[in-house]
């Protein structure tokens, strides 16, 4: 198993994460596998609203232990 930090934003099953935001997933899993496991709506990830380690990566990109996968998080501010 590998450990991935996930910031799902308003999407997906947050109860799969531990308190620190990590998801345990099988070694060899891809970005797409993780998004499916988290229950992120397909339309959201197909539109590319996520970043893997803050980069745009394809859904078949293989994950590595310690990666961060996060969704766009708009912040009101001035």
């Amino acid at each position: 198993m590998i450990s991935i930090r996930v910031y799902p934003g308003p999407f997906g099953k947050r109860d799969l994460l531990d308190d620190d935001g990590f998801l345990q997933i099988e070694d060899g899993s891809t970005v797409g596998d993780l998004l499916k496991a988290m229950g992120i709506p397909r339309i959201v990830y197909n539109m590319g609203f996520y970043g893997l380690n803050y980069k745009k990566e394809p859904l078949d990109k293989r994950l590595s232990d310690g990666d961060t996968l996060s969704f766009i998080a708009p912040l009101a501010g001035g």
Binding site: G9, P10, F11, G51, Y54, S70, F71, I72, A73, P74
Partner: peptide, 17 residues
């Protein structure tokens, strides 16, 4: 609307702002 519906009490990845 989507962000507000999800509720505010969770960590966000600030880099993604």
């Amino acid at each position: 609307r989507l962000m507000e519906k999800a509720g505010g009490l969770m960590p966000q990845d600030g880099m993604m702002s």
